Amino acid sequence: MCKGLSAIPSSCLEKAKGMRVKLSHLAEKQEWVYKHRANEEKLPQDLESLLNSKLGVQAFRWFLRSEFSEENLEFWLACEQYKSSSGPKLAGKAQSIYNQFINPDAPREVNLDSETREGLTGLMQEPTADTFDEAQHRIFSLMAKDSFPRFQRSLRVP
Rank of each mutant, 00 (worst) to 15 (best):
C79P: 03
A94C: 07
L50N: 02
L77F: 06
L77H: 00
Q125W: 05
G56W: 04
W76Y: 15
W32P: 00
E40A: 15
L47F: 07
Q95M: 13
Y82M: 09
P88N: 09
A106N: 13
D133M: 02
K93M: 11
L120E: 00
F151M: 06
A7Y: 03
K145V: 02
K54G: 04
G18H: 12
R20W: 07
K93V: 01
T121L: 11
K42R: 12
R20H: 09
E28W: 02
E74A: 03
V110T: 04
M143P: 05
E134S: 08
R37G: 08
S49R: 11
M1E: 09
G119V: 03
S86D: 15
P149L: 05
T128R: 02
S10A: 10
T131N: 11
A38I: 03
R108I: 05
Q58Y: 13
R61Q: 15
F148Y: 10
T128Q: 05
M124A: 12
G119S: 14
D105Y: 04
S53T: 12
L43T: 08
A129T: 11
L13W: 02
E48D: 11
M143N: 08
G122T: 12
I102W: 00
D130K: 07
E67D: 08
I139F: 03
I139M: 09
D105H: 07
P104I: 08
